[in-house]
């Protein structure tokens, strides 16, 4: 059995498989998110390619007792949260593995005080900034204009609460941003919701407005009440403690100067 260990959002997943070539492909595709072996892992994921699941157009997650069945185009996965293991049948192509991995992490994060958000993420001076929005809202534009920042993603980032502090993590799940993305995290400082039609550049948001906009951008498929309730609870706490804004990113030619101005005197979230 061949394996590699992925570390995304601080969750270490050992990926096992009989196909050395594919495990090597996974290792090279996610090279900045590969954990050296020997350390403790959070979950074990076993791949098989011997039989193809039926094509499913939509992604679905179904809970059966303490297990979840994650299904999508070209993959089907049984996730056992108690045994901290998962088995997936998946077509042997990195594109499908990448789609599966996004869905897989969106689900396992719920058990680790976290979730994934459609957003660009930036770090500057050990402070993280979230720029959330749907397709075509300007996430890639934000990443490309962010001189003097570390880029966490231009498509999907991870938020986790650790010891009551919200951290923003990079992911290997990017959109059109082609530069290398490192495995990074920092305490979340501000949330911005991208809005190209905003004339004033920046508008402060209420907790309620921020909460609703955040929910609309969370990447999540589980249809069970308990998981949704957890996400609501975590999101409401997040939007209560983190200042948020609507922003027209095109109004700011120097993002570094802009966030430095915002951060003056502000403490990291606690």
């Amino acid at each position: 059995m061949e394996y590699c260990v992925l570390n995304i959002g601080g969750l270490k997943v050992q990926v096992d498989g009989h196909d050395r070539e594919f495990i090597n492909l996974v290792s090279s595709q996610y090279i900045d998110f590969i954990q050296p072996g020997g350390e403790s892992i959070d979950l074990k994921l076993t791949l098989s390619h011997d039989s193809w699941p039926e094509d499913t157009e939509d992604i679905s997650i179904e809970k059966i007792n303490n297990s979840y069945i994650l299904a999508g185009e070209k993959f089907e996965c049984l996730l056992d949260t108690q045994a901290r293991s998962a088995a997936v049948r998946i077509i042997k192509e990195l594109t499908h593995f990448n789609t599966f991995l996004r869905v897989f992490y969106s689900q396992v994060l719920v058990f680790s005080e976290g979730f994934m958000v459609h957003a660009a993420g930036l770090i500057r001076n050990n402070r993280a900034y979230l720029f959330a929005g749907p397709s075509e809202s300007g996430k890639t534009t934000t990443a490309k204009r962010a001189n003097g920042f570390d880029i966490l993603s231009d498509e999907l980032v991870i938020i986790r609460r650790i010891n009551n502090i919200f951290f923003l993590y990079s992911t290997p799940f990017s959109g059109e941003y082609t530069q290398r993305i490192k495995n990074l995290k920092a305490p979340l400082s501000n949330i911005f919701f991208l809005n190209k039609r905003l004339k004033t550049g920046l508008v402060s948001k209420s907790s309620l407005s921020s909460f609703i906009d955040l929910l609309e951008n969370i990447f999540f498929f589980d249809q069970e009440k308990d998981s949704s309730q957890f996400i609501l609870g975590l999101s409401s706490r997040l939007t209560a403690v983190i200042e948020s804004f609507d922003i027209n990113i095109l109004s700011y030619s120097d993002l570094g100067r802009f966030v430095d101005g915002l951060s003056k005197g502000a403490e990291a979230n606690t």
Binding site: L208, D222, S227, S228, Q229, L232, S236
Partner: peptide, 14 residues
């Protein structure tokens, strides 16, 4: 699932 926030209630149909 639902959450009370700023005197309003937000309900999500999962």
């Amino acid at each position: 699932a639902w959450q009370e926030i700023d005197d309003a209630i937000v309900v999500v149909t999962p």
